[in-house]
Design a protein around this nucleic acid. Structure first.
Lengths: 81, 81
DNA sequence: AATTATTAACACATATATGTGTTATAAAGC
DNA sequence: GCTTTATAACACATATATGTGTTAATAATT
């Protein structure tokens, strides 16, 4: 128990976000500004350091100009739990 | 600033989750068991009391037997920010 | 090399999610 | 009425996300 964080999932999620961002040619700063969240937070999320929240997901979707659901559209791991 | 939570969004999100769950005829307890999270947490999320995390979203998707992205597929508010 | 742009890393206070246990409602069936 | 099932509500400790500020490292440009 005391799982809570789940590093592998968060790293993959971060990579997915970064892929969307770079695919659009946006900097972390631009995304942070549009999403109205600190640039440091964008970096931490992309690096998989934090397990971000629903409200931040919606903010990021706005900043990245994609539907929120797209942020969760990726393969979470090699083997499903 | 000091927004962080965003009650309206979280209430809508909770309603959306509850809609998926009841639409499948599942109890909170069943979902909690399958998602391996406390039943209390499921309730708090459905009631919009907490701003849950990415890892819990994936757990809930598993418990509800839907793709994670579906959990974010709803209209977040009457007027877009 | 120096400047600029971009990202990472670090520290810290505060808010809050999670996990756990317990108790209260509410509805349904006996 | 009692029991079962389902959900809500409360309390509390702990982990951690967020927000903020600062500094370092890494490109890219000139």
């Amino acid at each position: 128990m005391t799982k809570i964080r789940d590093s592998e999932l968060l790293e993959r999620f971060g990579d997915h976000l970064k892929g969307i961002r770079t695919g659009k040619g946006l900097s972390q700063e631009e995304v942070a500004y549009r999403a109205d969240i600190p640039i440091n937070q964008v970096g931490r999320i992309e690096r998989g350091e934090v397990n971000t929240t629903v409200s931040t997901l919606f903010a990021l979707a706005k900043g990245l100009e994609v539907p929120p659901a797209q942020l969760l559209s990726f393969e979470p791991s090699l083997s499903q739990g």
